[in-house]
Structure formats: structure tokens, C-alpha cells
Amino acid sequence: MKRTITHLADGRELFYFDLRDDEDRSAADERDLPPRPPASELRYDPLTEEWIAVAGHRQSRTFLPPASECPLCPSTPGHPTEIPASSYDVAVFENRFPSFSAQPGEYEQVGGLSEVRPGVGRCEVVCFTSDHDSSFSALSPEQVELVMEAWIDRTAELSAMPGVEQVFCFENRGPEIGITLAHPHGQIYAYPYVTPRTKLTLGAAERHRERTGGNLFADVLAAEREAKIRVVASNEHWTAFVPAAARWPVEVHLYPHRRVPDLLALEPSERAAFGPLYTEVLRRLDGLFGVPMPYIAAWHQAPVNVGRDLSYAHLELFSIRRAPDKLKYLAGSESAMGAFVNDVLPEHTAHLLRSVITD
């Protein structure tokens, strides 16, 4: 693998990850770009004890352009994009419209019980392939490994940045999910706090350890592998299963068999084994209803400074599609109360996914 770092016209960093060592990445970004926006505001919600990012500049971000104007495709004569090269394997760059950044700004207190502070952190875009019409499920095992190397590289570097408390790699896929760009890509958020979901699960893991002496995530995996009924697919190093208490109509979790706090701790054999299983699961999702499955793929990694002995790196994959022509909307119970009601039996979802022919 070859890693090359360069800069875009407004000073943002761009990283190329290539399978070949002889790729030329000297093409420069010659666009005339506006100044980078300041970091967002973080406002504290005393009712939930959570930080809310307010990033008004994101209202002007690019929204579902035609393929001929895609900013994630390689640059061509007359159409410069975020990636100056004429082709690439994997490219990662700082988001032009970030939720968090290190750019200085001015912030005023808003009164009441809410505290305001800068949304210091970083947001990056990960382009999985230069092929606009492809998808993660169509990537070769070598390309998936390269994407994973990019995730690992960026997790390590972002975790070392001042003020960063958690690094989150994820992919949003499909207009139903709310994507703004159709090109196969994901994102990485470097948060200046530990996210609410992670706090919740680590709290549960700590209480589980106090009661049993075991690791909660490892015990969940072991129980699912023993029950078998919700296992969708597995190999020597990974198991994919529908959780017994799935919130979403289609939800699959992928765990390595060995507990690691983050992607950096995976052995080469574990990294190599991830791609074939994950792309199989994605093809099963696409084959479930005969239409491309909208989904969110979320890597859960240990925070930078806390809970690392409790964490268990894993991927959670879920979709809002509950039937070929029906979506799961987060209405009153889910949105207002955070109380999920799943319309589909998890065991039935697992059975349907196992029944999909992927070859």
C-alpha cells in the first residue's frame, strides 16, 4: 500500500491510498475556493446532558448533483473536483462542510442553562472507489482491505489530535437514508466528546463486568454464536448476526472473534477476512427485497481516553427499509421518547438474509 498526502486549494488535507507503489499523485487542485468555515458551535442540553453541534454553514453543502457534476469523482478537463487525480483507488480528504473542525471562530454564550463552546474536531470523507456507479458490496477483497487501511490510518492520526475524544467511521447509503452525494463514500467524525450511544453501551458493559466478571460484547457474541438462529454468515475470524433485540427492520452486527478496542488492533489475517464476509452481507441486503438496500454502516470503536478496557470494536449495519415498498419512519415513540418498536421479528430477518442467493 502507498499513502500520499497533499493539499486542496483551500488548505484541506487530501490522502491517497493506492494498491500500487508507482502511482503519481502530483496533480494539483487549481480551483478558486472560498475560505474554510469556522468550527461549529457545541451547545449543551442540560435535560439530556448531551452536546449538540450547530453548524449553519452545512446548509449550503452540495445536494444530490448529477453524476456529471459529482465532486467525488476524479477530476477531468473542465471539471475539477475534490480529487485532482484522474483516477484513484481510495481517497480521503477533509470535509468542505464539516460538523467539527479546528478552524477558529467566535462564539457567544446564549444564556439559560446551555453552555457554548467550539466544535473542535475533524470530519473527513472517504471515497471507496473512483467508480461513481459502484458500491461497497462490489469492491474486491483487496479494495476492502485498502479501505480498512485508510480507516486504520485515519483513526490513529485523528485519535492523536488535541481535543478529540472519539473517532467514528461510517457509511450512509441511499437517498432514503438522506445522502447528499451518490458516489460510493463514507465519512469519519473525530468528536470532541464521547458520543451518547457509546456512553450508554460502556455503562452497560461496566455494570455487566461488575455482575459477571465478563465482557458484555464478548458475551453477546458468544451467546449469538451458540444460539445460531440469528447468525447470518461467519468465517474463521468474524460473525455477522441479527441482534435479538434489533431496533431496525434489517439490522446486522459484525464482530471479530477476538476482542479488540479499535480497528488498529486487528491482526492482518482479521483485516483480510473482514471484506469477503462484509460484502457478502451487503449483497444479501441488496437481494432481500430485490432493490438496493439503503443502510447505515457504523464502526463502534473505543473512545480515545476512556472505556478502552470495556470496548469491543464491531460494525453495526442497519436499514430503515422494512418491505420492498415500505420504510420504517422514526415517528412519535422513536423520535420523541427514544422507545423503538420493530415491525419485523429479528429471527425472521436472519432467516430471510440467509436465504438470499449471493452468487
Rank of each mutant, 00 (worst) to 15 (best):
W299E: 12
P276Y: 05
H253T: 13
A246F: 00
A244L: 15
P243I: 00
D286Q: 09
T239E: 09
P268V: 02
W248F: 12
H300E: 14
P303C: 11
R247C: 13
P294I: 10
A302S: 12
H237V: 10
V242G: 04
D286H: 11
E267I: 07
Y255S: 01
S269A: 15
V281L: 03
Y255T: 00
G275R: 05
F274W: 10
M293R: 05
M293W: 08
W248A: 01
H237Q: 15
E267C: 04
R271G: 01
R308A: 05
A240M: 09
L285Y: 08
N305H: 15
L263I: 02
A272Q: 13
V304T: 12
L285A: 01
L288Q: 10
V260C: 10
A265K: 07
W248P: 03
L277H: 04
R283Q: 11
L288C: 09
G275E: 05
H300L: 12
A297P: 07
G290T: 08
R284L: 06
Y278M: 14
E251P: 05
A298W: 13
A246T: 03
R284D: 03
A272W: 08
H237A: 13
V242I: 04
P256H: 02
V291G: 06
P276G: 04
P261W: 01
D262M: 03
H257V: 01
P256K: 00
A244F: 15
Y295F: 15
R259K: 14
A265R: 09
A244S: 14
N305S: 15
P261Q: 03
V260W: 11
L266T: 00
R247D: 14
A272Y: 10
E270S: 02
R271Y: 04
W248E: 04
H257Y: 13
H300F: 12
P261C: 05
V304P: 12
E267T: 15
G275Q: 03
E270R: 04
A245I: 07
G287Y: 03
Q301P: 09
R271V: 11
V306E: 15
W238F: 07
L285N: 02
G307T: 06
V291P: 07
A302I: 07
P276A: 02
L254A: 02
Q301I: 11
Y278I: 06
V250N: 02
W248S: 01
V260E: 08
S269T: 12
S269H: 12
Y295A: 01
L282D: 03
I296H: 15
F241H: 06
A245M: 14
A265D: 08
L254H: 01
V306N: 08
L264D: 13
A272V: 07
L266I: 00
H253W: 15
A273L: 05
S269M: 09
P261K: 03
T239Q: 10
L288G: 11
R283F: 06
V260P: 12
H253R: 14
V304N: 05
P292L: 11
A298Q: 14
E280P: 11
L288K: 10
G287K: 06
R247N: 14
H253D: 14
A302E: 08
F241V: 00
W299I: 02
L264Y: 08
S269L: 13
R247E: 14
V252E: 08
S269N: 12
R271W: 04
P292H: 12
G275I: 05
A265L: 06
D262K: 02
H253Y: 13
V304Y: 03
L288P: 09
F274K: 02
T239S: 14
G307V: 08
G275H: 02
V242M: 07
V281M: 02
